[in-house]
Amino acid sequence: MSVLYQAVRAVGGPAARLLFRPRVEGLHNIPRTGPVILASNHLSFIDSVVIPLIVPRRVAFLAKAEYFEGTGLRGRAKRAFFGGVGNIPVQRNDQRGALASLEIAMGVLHDGGAFGIYPEGSRSRDGRLYRGRTGVGWLALASKAPVVPVGLIGTDRMQPVGSNLPRYHRITVRFGEPMDFSAHVGRRDVGKARREVTDAVMSAIHELSGQEYAGVFNEHATAE
Rank of each mutant, 00 (worst) to 15 (best):
G121T: 06
P146N: 04
S122H: 14
G75V: 04
A98P: 15
V147M: 04
R170G: 15
V216L: 08
R79L: 01
I51Y: 02
E69N: 00
I117H: 09
D111C: 12
V8L: 08
P56T: 02
V136T: 07
G97S: 03
Y213S: 03
Q159W: 01
P146L: 04
F217H: 15
I117L: 13
D126S: 11
L152G: 00
N29R: 02
R133C: 09
S122R: 08
R170K: 09
S48T: 15
V201S: 01
L19V: 14
G97C: 07
H28M: 02
G151M: 12
H169D: 10
G116D: 03
A183Q: 00
G86F: 02
P56Q: 07
L152H: 01
R128E: 12
L99D: 15
G154W: 01
A223I: 10
R32I: 02
V24C: 08
R21P: 14
H220E: 15
Y213Q: 00
N87R: 00
D47K: 14
V147E: 04
M179Y: 05
P178T: 06
G127S: 00
V216Q: 13
L27A: 12
L73H: 11
V50L: 10
T222L: 14
W138C: 13
L165S: 12
S48F: 13
G191D: 08
V50N: 10
G137W: 04
F68D: 06
E224W: 13
T172S: 15
G107V: 10
P119R: 05
R23H: 00
T155M: 08
R21Q: 15
T198H: 10
A221E: 10
M202E: 05
S44C: 01
L129C: 11
G12D: 00
N218L: 09
H169L: 09
G210N: 04
F82L: 00
R17M: 08
R21A: 15
G26I: 03
P52F: 07
R131Y: 07
Y5F: 11
G75E: 00
E224C: 12
G83S: 06
R23T: 01
G83H: 07
M106W: 06
V50I: 15
G26L: 03
A183Y: 06
L4Q: 11
L73R: 08
I205Y: 13
F68L: 03
I205Q: 11
P31H: 02
Q91H: 14
T134L: 07
V36I: 02
V148W: 05
G26R: 06
R194C: 06
V8H: 03
T134C: 10
F20P: 11
G121E: 06
A204C: 04
P89G: 05
I51T: 05
R21F: 12
A140Y: 06
S122N: 15
R131H: 07
Q91F: 14
A183T: 05
I104H: 03
A114Q: 10
R58H: 12
V216T: 15
G121C: 12
R58C: 13
S48L: 13
H169T: 13
